[in-house]
Nucleic acid binder design. Structure first.
Lengths: 152, 152
DNA sequence: TATTGTTATACTCTATAACTATA
DNA sequence: TATAGTTATAGAGTATAACAATA
């Protein structure tokens, strides 16, 4: 097994148990750093998270959105009300079952979310440019594995 | 530049901009997954985070701890009071300047923190065992780069 | 009668401002 | 007079329980 240059810290992660520990700390720290690059802080993390879920699903009932965000329905009512007042989401009654409330992103909401994403990507891009090609290659190969772990 | 097996998703991240985007999503998701493996939820994330900071620094003044945790002093007073009631930390007056309050982990606090860490590592270890040797090697090489990004 | 979402109420956590003690 | 920490008070945000509308 050969190591590329700059592996002094990685060699400490020789055993699998050590790899788990090192990887966990690195991922948590980087996540924290990325989170701090939030847009303007006028929106809470929960509000942004709910919008992110909506971005992937089109129309979702308020209850399903609450479940997806691991929040109780009354809390989601409040979150959606706030986002609706800002024009970032829209409530619409379900035509088939009028007890249901469908929520979806407005164009303004989608744009704000995209701007947020671009901003975080911009920071990460700047950092990536400072790395060596080998280091970037290491990240490229690991990205798909990290995704796999996150889904499991 | 050669690619190892199982790179179908990674090839999507050909350009650096795409790498940033893919990496950000993967890291945030995995961090969220790791966070959900918290011990018993009797402690909040802020309390655990404060304890983690203490673990690395021995004795710290309450003000420095508040600054490190990006929290105001009154909030840290409350957090420390709560942790002290549980026997996880101890307040001690600074012998030199009696205005200062030094905080440090008790043995029980250190043990609880370690148990927490072990639990998260255990989950990640189980997942790592399911990966191929190539995938683990990719993570091993990337871990040090992720750490570097997190510190920047 | 069951289900979806909302309103009412209480609790937790945080912050700012005022206060106490030490320097 | 300045500084470290605590106490007092108010403002978000969340949850459970009670309620209204619809099925």
């Amino acid at each position: 097994m050969t190591y590329a240059k700059g592996m002094t810290a990685a060699t400490k992660a020789r055993s699998q148990a050590e790899l788990a520990s090192v990887l966990r700390v690195a991922v948590m720290r980087l996540a924290r750093r990325l989170r701090s690059e939030r847009e303007d802080d006028s929106l809470t993390l929960n509000q942004l998270s709910a919008m992110g879920t909506l971005a992937g699903h089109g129309q979702v009932t308020l209850g399903d959105l609450a479940a997806a965000e691991m929040v109780q329905p009354p809390s989601m009512t409040r979150i959606v009300t706030n986002l609706e007042e800002r024009g970032l989401v829209i409530r619409e009654p379900d035509p088939g079952d009028r007890r249901l409330v469908l929520v979806r992103l407005t164009d303004a909401g989608a744009e704000l979310l995209a701007a947020n994403r671009r901003r975080r990507d911009a920071w990460l891009n700047r950092q990536l440019r400072e790395l060596t090609p080998d280091e970037r290659e290491a990240l490229r190969r690991a990205a798909v594995v990290l995704e796999k772990l996150a889904r499991s």
